[in-house]
Amino acid sequence: MATISRRDGRTAREMRGKELRTSDLSQFDGSAWYSQGLTAVTVAINGPTAARQENYRRCTTCIHVNRAARIPQEGGTGRLIMMERRERERCEDGELKQFLTSLVEAIVCLDRFPRCVLEAHVTVLMDDGALFAVASNAIMCALLDAGVPCRSTIAAVSLIMCNPEASGNEGEPEIFLDPTAVEESTDEVRSYASATFVLTNTGGEAVLASRVQARPRSSAYSRPITPKDLSRMFALAAKAAETLFVFFRNCSMALE
């Protein structure tokens, strides 16, 4: 069996380099700039602030997702394809917005702020894979930086399932942590599914949010995702989340 090698030299269980900066944007109540490898996301938090709205029992959340770089213009017959890809990118932004909205509503104590609005501006500076995990980690750090009361802290992990053999469904699938965009979307590492899991710091294998998607049928290595594969992904995500929690704790220590 040939071992699948990753282009950037990482092993299957290795994550990309993580970097976190908080409180950079002074006009917001809290901000975080978080990157894993080349994927970088900036989140800025305003609020909770009083606002006129009809929900008088809990705070309303408002998440805006933007991209620093959109798909550039194109001429000729490629213009229709460019417009199609732009619309598809807007749909992906809508999905990321829904994902982050349900996440913020789950972890923030919204019932403490009736008739208020909590606003978050998420800017995707660069997308090189694992975007949902990086954006979730960034918004968690921004909420803590803003001092918004949260029930627990979360860590989000992205992974891909890879076919160990060149064809067929034999063999135990391999799970790679923290995929890049090339690993997620091409056949370079024979991936057939990508997943993002959000876990809380209470430990165990309880999952707060999940997103599993099989790769397109036209890829060469597609195979079914069984519930056993799902359980293996949960277990690996729980182990990887511990690494992220240690990283987040170490970031807040003062340099002596």
Partner: peptide, 23 residues
């Protein structure tokens, strides 16, 4: 899918759910 493999799995909510319950 036809052979009961998972194609898409999306979960969101206010509480963490055990992986045994999800499967």
């Amino acid at each position: 899918s036809d052979e009961n493999g998972i194609i898409t799995f999306v979960q969101s909510g206010s509480y963490s759910i055990s992986s045994l319950l999800l499967t």
